[in-house]
Design a protein around this nucleic acid. Sequence first.
DNA 1: TGTACATCAGTGAACGCGCGTTCACTGATGTAC
DNA 2: TGTACATCAGTGAACGCGCGTTCACTGATGTAC
Lengths: 239, 239
Amino acid sequence: MTTRRRRSPRGSGEQLREEIIDAAMGLLEECADAEAVSIRAVAESVGITPPAIYLHFTDKDGLLDAVCGRYFEGLDSALGAAQAAHDHPLDQALAMGRAYVRFALDHPAVYRFAFGHTGVDPTPMVDEALRTAAFVRLAGAVTDLVGLGWYPDPASPAEGVAVEVQMALEMWTVAHGVASLMIAKPDLPWGEDLRVAESVMRATCLGRGLLPMVGEHARGPEVQRFVRELRGGDADRAQ
Amino acid sequence: MTTRRRRSPRGSGEQLREEIIDAAMGLLEECADAEAVSIRAVAESVGITPPAIYLHFTDKDGLLDAVCGRYFEGLDSALGAAQAAHDHPLDQALAMGRAYVRFALDHPAVYRFAFGHTGVDPTPMVDEALRTAAFVRLAGAVTDLVGLGWYPDPASPAEGVAVEVQMALEMWTVAHGVASLMIAKPDLPWGEDLRVAESVMRATCLGRGLLPMVGEHARGPEVQRFVRELRGGDADRAQ
DNA sequence: TGTACATCAGTGAACGCGCGTTCACTGATGTAC
DNA sequence: TGTACATCAGTGAACGCGCGTTCACTGATGTAC
């Protein structure tokens, strides 16, 4: 049992609420297991009694939702910083991918928890995904790329889904794959830092642009220009 | 309570063991939640009493390990069939990627459970991964591709890890990303069947080969040959 | 073929535990006069 | 400035529950004679 905390003054209920979220997030990371995060453990960690939690959250799910919300806020903030550090949308997209993986690795247990439930929720997941600021941010950079002609519309657009949404989804998939597998299997030969992430994201960006481009007739110079541009700013882009 | 089952004859303890694994796997898929799989629920599903489980497994973890083992057996078998259906190692790699995603989507809860724990286990994970037949199979196809000159050794080999291991790891990452995110967010605009998986895996194969190839000097015809070959057998490769 | 017996797969009841949540309460904080 | 009082953030004790696991047991199965 930690020391008893001073009672909050009248108007500042919000502060304890934040402390509870902090504690829950800390326990989740510490134990690396969502089942170990109990109302009792969170309360003890904050220095209050279990029932006090219910003054700030309707139930345990409410608390865990808040933890996820906190994570996504931080994620969007990290992606925003990564985006702001670059001008070209390709650099922005790659930087956001790196930031995404890095942020996930910094909060592995929360990340696993946030993506460890099926999407059969009350809230439809499409809306949730679109409302997720992080995904919108990524899709924005990809849209800019399409606008620059890097990713021409495919010959056969699939099911009326915009090409930039498809591509943002694929980039998200790749970043998620790296983050998720690095968390699940940290002892695989990942090499130093984000080497694999960098390589696979770059390969996807390159290959994804080339696939439709060479579909009907292989346009040599165009392919080479594309490749040169993608490879051009390596030194600047490497973080 | 289901009907009481006939007692197994003397030598056939193995059969009930398999039935218990089946039941646990079924419950896991049904509830889509590992916490819902209790010893009691499994026992009731099989038609035995809880203590009988302990005649076949040391404890609950032992049972869940066996469930994962069953999954990985099936996965390797599915990948084997996919591989056997093609001659060219690139076709084999892509087919195995598709089979990986398809098999994961067929057992979403088990997949999530198998990848939902950190690798800080007694068994070192590198060994486990290398012993995993499925990964060895994929790495084999990639090794064949390297042998055919599709993926030349990089100018700067990273940390002494063989290029084919790096590439197999990246392909695994991509397939895992698709499977994992499709399971976690089924309502995203994935399109029909494995469209996104097909696209992103193909893009990775293409871009991954091009990245080192154009590193020092952009070799035009070589790039085009590569691209043509990759795109050549579309009709044959589409499942 | 018939009977006594050893084996051991599975049972029934119970254990201790930690959990999420409730409810009547307490007592420090801030306010009205 | 001093006092009585309302508010409400947090407490303490308890609830019912389902869990993993144990242990002495039962009784069908197979075997020895």
